[in-house]
């Protein structure tokens, strides 16, 4: 019995020894951001440069914009980096965020079946949506309060289509991220609004292709802000602000502009530039 107890103890000590450190390292910040920036590989490109320059480690939790802002509201992140200006301004107005700055933009595209049964292809997003609705071709909506979902709802509204009232089973809200939405569109040959970065890094395209792009209204502005340290005392304000400052610095902006997938630039730095209209 003593031998068994000793060996159990040894196993226990060994296991606890391998237990991960329970407290985060001293110089690290948590950034709540969106799947479009994480899954496109942008953070994988930017963060080593920032960490190399400042020694601050950045941990990215990738969620939809709505959820990312909620994480900020609870004080569980130091910095929020998202793309839904209306929701961001509300976040700042509520006192949860400070020092919001604009960083870059990318663009949305409509992907759909190459055969394009709705004849949506072109460079006019509103006309494309009207045609999809008129022909009741399947359309996958994120339905998850993400920045992309918010933008989609704005486009439907601008196209004069009351999507809540549209009825029929052609409009499918799935309540999931960009990747699942693309997977579902690919599996069911449906139309879908996607950010270009996620589309470019998405591999299971099946019969889908980009049908609508290049409309100025499809530009998608990203903003970054510090979670208010007065409201949430645990926020690492100095380190978080250093990250924000680096993103809008010449070096950070250059690094954003340099990022390519298959030779295509995904994000266009525009800190301090004229604002892109939504």
């Amino acid at each position: 019995m003593a031998v068994l107890r000793r060996s159990l103890l040894a196993i226990g000590v060994a296991l606890l020894g391998m237990a991960p450190t329970l407290t985060p390292a001293a110089s690290s910040i948590t950034v709540a951001s969106t799947t479009s920036t994480e899954q496109s590989g942008l953070f994988g490109h930017l963060l080593p440069r920032f960490t190399g320059r400042t020694g601050i480690e950045v941990r990215v939790v990738a969620l939809g914009t709505g959820q990312a802002l909620d994480v900020g509201r609870r004080g569980d992140a130091d910095v929020v980096f998202v793309h839904d200006r209306a929701a961001e301004e509300k976040f700042v107005a509520e006192g949860h965020g400070v020092n919001r700055v604009e960083v870059m933009y990318n663009d949305f595209v409509i992907a759909g079946p190459k055969s394009d049964p709705a004849k949506a292809a072109g460079s006019d997003i509103l006309q494309a949506l009207q045609r999809i609705a008129a022909t009741e071709q399947p359309f996958i909506s994120r339905g998850d309060r993400s920045g992309t979902h918010a933008a989609e709802l704005r486009y439907w509204q601008a196209a004069g289509i009351d999507i809540a009232d549209a009825g029929g089973d052609w409009y499918r809200e799935i309540g999931q991220g960009m990747g699942p939405a693309l997977n579902m569109a690919s599996a069911s040959n449906a139309y879908v609004l996607s950010d270009r970065g996620t589309w470019l890094s998405f591999k299971n395209r099946g019969e889908l292709a980009i049908l609508v792009e290049g409309d100025r209204r499809l530009f998608n502005q990203y903003g970054v802000m510090l979670v208010n340290p007065e409201k949430h005392p645990d926020v690492q304000a100095t380190e978080g602000q250093a990250f924000i400052d680096w993103l809008v610095s010449d070096e950070g902006q250059q690094a954003i502009g340099d990022y390519r997938i298959d030779g295509q630039q995904l994000f266009f730095p525009n800190a301090g530039a004229t604002q892109i209209s939504q």
Binding site: T21, L22, T23, T30, R74
Partner: peptide, 16 residues
């Protein structure tokens, strides 16, 4: 969560 009862531990989003 930082806003929750055990928030002071700072454990959220960690292996702990």
């Amino acid at each position: 969560s930082r806003s929750g009862p055990l928030g002071a531990l700072g454990l959220l989003f960690s292996p702990g």
